[in-house]
Nucleic acid binder design. Structure first.
Lengths: 336, 336
DNA sequence: CTGTTAGCGCTTTCAT
DNA sequence: ATGAAAGCGCTAACAG
């Protein structure tokens, strides 16, 4: 391994000078700088990251904590963060929290031990107090997909309320008047907000959402299917079904179709996220696009910035909007 | 930050002793060890990873290089590796290679600079010579999903030939005699091997695979659909379609159905991988399960072992077998 | 069994 | 503009 000493020796300068050249410090003579650069090139010198990390107490990595990397949504999140990291010459340190507070906290602590000053956290289960305390000690901690007012300027999140509203508005514009909602049991606020958006719009339109038509289950295909079978068993009537996310929507469509109902002819279905999978099902799913990859890239940049220059908790936050992607799972019944 | 010196001072011992205690070295008196442990506890001392990495020239991380983390298959790979890493108290360093040799090489070099001694590489595009050279310099480099004879003991791979054979045997057992294959343009050997397995079995059964019925495209839904439209346009006849992977299979099913063909009534379809998505499409996809998560966990452990005790290139390798998962996309026409 | 000490490779004052 | 030198926190001989 070629070290800074080797370069210094060969170039006939001190290690301090080499260090200055490497860092593009202005305090080096032109001739000297040129010579050192050439030697660095010739010897193929690369600074040792660990030595740097030790001195600077910062490791050129950005940490990402998500529940489960094998889920497409989190894979996309990680990819977005990785893109930002690569552009800045940093590397990604990944941890699964497995939906558990303890694992999540362990992961963060471990990340800090690795001198990872910028951290992106997707936390669904830890309570606000815990997170706030964490945030106090880690200037480069950024939350993604979660909004905590006291940490507003460090939250990169989605306008779920608007998402719910858009879905409802769209469905109404397509002539639908009777709805069912398949929502998630997550303890975070996303499902509630999306539902709230739906209800607001329905209310404003003088439409009613029967509470019996709102069913909770786990946020995956199995949960979506299970929710629909309960809905069907209860004899609920509806022409449009709003699902918490794509996975639930697809599970719901499967259950609907298994029950002999046609989508969208008998029931229209709308999802949320716009995962790749929404083009796999039949009919292709109409859904709200969640720009998670872009948001993660943004969050990574924010985390890096904050880790370098901790700011006063200013009041602006970082809000993204979901957008509707029309495919084939919604029927226009306004003209029939 | 509390350092080893703080602990030493408070416990009234030298840093060396603390270090010994931390490492559970046997050379410490019971009373002393106990006292030190208590102080460590009280002060909340955690060894500095970077200082360690600098001294040992090894950072408690394991590197993973895959083409694109946002694809489910690679997300699962990463999750498997992360599981193994977590069990050993290590962290995951992730890089996307974006299907480019240059990015891939950069990623590996960068990983090495981070003193990442164990590396899992999923490489499709780099040539064998490049990889062999890399492997010479990195004892802890393990290849996943690629077999290079000279590196046999460091390859964790799947028996694609067997996969192809199993698919063909299954289809034949269901009465199929006319086939089409939708394969991938990947430059690695997987598609060729799977195809070879299919052909071998068909040959042995006295069945013929018309070369015109073998179509290449990109390994995603779009590619699968595109391949099928070419197939259909050429007037090819077949009752069973074998796809390179689940994504192509689903794209193919979509194209088939769009052309008015029913799956599996008119055409049976088999995929490969058994991604979560294969339960999203209708009909649910019959496919070969690729135990990628398990393989990645295995690969991670292997990489860690090798990085510690580099071994002679022994002749045994690490081969996994795909298994058939029957769902609804294949029709049994043997009794009709 | 325990302490002393010399680094690991790099950054950063402080001199010159 | 450049160099000397003091660490960053930890480990691993080497003494005792």
């Amino acid at each position: 391994m070629v070290t800074i000493k080797d370069v210094a020796r060969v170039a006939g300068v001190s290690t301090a000078t080499v260090s200055r050249v490497v860092h593009n410090g202005g305090q080096v003579g032109e001739a000297c700088r040129h010579r050192v650069k050439k030697v660095i090139e010739e010897l193929g010198y690369r600074p040792n990251v660990n030595a740097r990390a030790l001195v600077n107490n910062s490791s050129n990595t950005i940490g990402v904590v998500t529940p489960k990397l094998s889920m497409t949504f989190f894979g996309c999140l990680a990819s977005g963060a990785e893109k930002a990291a690569r552009k800045k010459g940093l590397k990604l340190l990944m941890s699964n929290s497995l939906y558990e507070t303890k694992t999540e906290l362990d992961a963060i602590e471990s990340l800090r031990e690795h001198s990872c000053n910028a951290i992106i956290l997707h936390s669904e289960y830890s309570d606000e107090k815990t997170i706030k305390k964490l945030a106090e000690n880690i200037p480069g901690l950024v939350l993604i997909n979660r909004y905590i007012p006291a940490l507003a300027s460090r939250c990169v999140w989605l306008d779920n309320l608007s998402g719910g509203r858009q879905v409802a508005e769209y469905l109404i514009s397509r002539g639908h008047t009777s709805f069912a909602v398949v929502t998630s049991v997550y303890r975070n606020h996303d499902p509630q907000l999306r539902l709230k958006g739906v209800v607001e719009v329905l209310d404003a339109a003088g439409l009613k959402l029967d509470p019996a038509n709102v069913v909770e289950s786990t946020a995956n295909m199995e949960g979506g299917a299970e929710a629909v079978s309960r809905l069907l068993a209860s004899g609920a009537k509806f022409t449009a079904l709003i699902a918490y996310n794509d996975l639930m929507a697809i599970g719901a469509m499967n259950a609907l179709q298994d029950a002999g109902l046609r989508v969208p002819d008998d029931v229209s279905v709308v999802g949320f996220d716009d995962l790749y999978i929404s083009k796999a099902c039949r009919p292709h799913l109409t859904t709200m696009a969640y720009p998670i990859e872009e948001m993660a890239e943004y969050a990574a940049n924010l985390a890096i910035t904050l880790s370098k220059t901790p700011q006063e908790p200013i009041s602006n936050t970082h809000l993204f909007l979901p957008t509707l992607v029309e495919r084939d799972s919604v029927r226009d019944i306004s003209k029939s």
